[in-house]
Nucleic acid binder design. Structure first.
Lengths: 344, 344
DNA sequence: TTGAAAGCGCTAACAG
DNA sequence: CTGTTAGCGCTTTCAA
């Protein structure tokens, strides 16, 4: 099967430890031996067995990226992953990818063989919505260092400043002169039983509230009684665009909401931004779909990097709780916002 | 640090091998010992060290997902990943995630040093566009079993039937009565030097050609001389919507092209589908952005699963080359296609 | 029904 | 400069 140190040793006529030393650039060796050993290792196509190395060192040099089974519960934007990788690359650490089975399928003491078996020094948890209590418990019990990405916790987490996004998006509109600014809610935030929704939705709403109240403006929510499925968003948006008391601006803080709102406006013959200003939030440039949406961009690359960096620190010092790291979004002007047109 | 078999043995007052036997449900043991050992293992929070197991078995029980460093070169749709995981879960195999750093890609030694250290029994290569020759060479040389996802190779690959997508999309429009059907190319397919573009773009084009030629219809390409960047797609689309000889239907076989085409049409006062029919291709339901686009969906979950399954077979039987597996896309009606409006 | 011993591939301490 | 030896955590004979 795979080439081992021992085999190289035989071929090169030296001992295994000599091979090990030379391949790891340790000790003082005869230049000839050194060359010969390196050459045979190359010829034989030697690849060190990381498992053996790990077992020896007592470290795995490997961390786990924990995801929900269902992609909607733990969205992993490509640049977040890129950030994680870049940080790891600097430290020669590998990434193992683990998906937890659906929450419903979990017994109280069974989290998935993946996490029950040890092959990583720490956990990067990108499980965002509907986080199962079994997971939280497991993380607390197991002594594994862990960092949460994009979810809210007292310690050991990295997330965007969603409150500020809500606040700033609203301020942006207010400063342009808007007074009648709606907050779009297609998820049913008003429903008390939906606490499992991603925290950002509530934070956006609170940021909006704060900005509106500071100015003494009335809140204005746009929502259906039900949580709208994607297929209905366009229709519903067209519907409320027809209302006579239509707002002059709307916060649609998900691109999956902003696009149908934008398109619905066009279909209703409204001009954007003259008749309706729209602000949204994107995870990635490509989310814009080549549309000129005014948007806040979640700093996904930075989140990935920062979370990984935090985890590596925790691995060195597992006892230490880390302050939550809250990163700011960046703003792109776009062209879906303008001062309101006077309404005669 | 972590709890070991030896520690359990001490606590339970038995030998390490007994512990191992019992935890793996092997051998005949006294029910009392059995219970005691299991209990202490539980109490101590024992989790087997996979590295030690792996070293013993001579297998890693782990495969690598190889990605490009730059996310645009190896797009990994969430459901593809889900398919990979589901297949692996059935076999108790782990997934390690590796990104090949771009800058050093030309350096052969570097690429192999990355892949060399992978602790895996095989490679799942999700590197789609601009595949570096160093990678291809490495895969051929190294004896690691490997399967390519979403790229075209003579053997050992799983990909969608993009030719058929192009063909069927065109047929769909033809059968509705369209004769003037344009193929949208915002990537510069006509430029000979762009062979590195993803194969699907060329296959879509060929499928379109085939369907048009069968009917004796004239090809009609929409493209700029340059490869359009996202920011310009909307403007360019608006521009060609104004042309008097505008086609009655268009193939925009990427959602990133279809959305700006659709929106540009609305901005120009065109009705979709009455004035312009649009067909597109999506990777995921969510790509639709709640718009009613008529679309072919890439079978990403199935691709992930099938590729993984193929890889597992190759790991068992590394010598065997596998026939490429070409999966069909599914069609969703949407409402952006209709018979052409008679043009007086 | 249980335990001792060997060994997977690798590295580090210690001899020589 | 190089080799011997021991041991990481685990499993698997084989013997008791």
């Amino acid at each position: 099967m795979a080439v081992t140190v021992k085999q190289i040793a035989q071929h090169a006529g030296v001992s295994a430890s000599t091979v090990s030393h030379i391949l790891n650039n340790r000790g003082q060796y005869n230049e000839k031996t050194r060359a010969r050993v390196k050459q045979t290792a190359d010829d034989l196509g030697y690849r060190p067995n990381r498992f053996a190395q790990g077992i020896r060192k007592g470290r795995f040099d490997c961390i786990s990226l924990v995801l929900a089974h269902c992609p909607t519960l733990s969205y992993l934007p490509p640049y977040r992953l890129a950030g994680i990788h870049d940080e790891l690359l600097d430290h020669g650490i590998h990434l193992v990818n683990s998906k937890l089975p659906e929450p419903q399928l979990e017994n109280k003491d069974y989290i998935s063989s993946i996490l029950r078996e040890l092959m990583s020094d720490g956990l990067l948890i990108n499980y965002n919505t509907k986080i199962p209590t079994t997971l939280t418990q497991f993380v607390e019990q197991s002594q594994l260092p862990a960092v949460w990405i994009n979810s809210k916790h007292d310690v050991d987490c990295v997330r965007p400043d969603d409150l500020k996004i809500g606040y700033q998006a609203t301020r942006h509109l207010i400063e342009m002169g808007h007074r009648d600014i709606a907050f779009l809610d297609y998820q049913g935030l008003h429903d008390q039983s939906r606490v499992w929704l991603h925290y950002s939705a509530f934070d956006h709403l609170n940021g909006y509230r704060q900005a509106m109240e500071e100015e003494g403006l009335d809140l204005s929510m746009v929502h259906d009684q039900t949580m709208l499925v994607p297929e209905d968003k366009l229709d519903f948006s067209r519907h409320w665009h027809q209302q006579p008391n239509r707002p002059t601006a709307v916060l649609a803080l998900t691109v999956l909401d902003a696009v149908p709102v934008y398109v619905a406006a066009l279909l209703q013959g409204l001009k954007v931004p003259e008749d309706l200003s729209i602000v949204t939030v994107i995870n990635d440039k490509l989310d814009l779909m080549s549309l000129p949406l005014t948007a806040f961009t979640i700093p996904n690359y930075e989140m990935g990097r920062a979370a990984t960096s935090m985890l590596l620190k925790k691995i060195k010092n597992p006892a230490k709780k880390m302050e939550p790291l809250i990163l700011e979004a960046t703003f792109s002007q776009g062209s879906t916002c303008a001062p309101p047109t006077p309404n005669y």
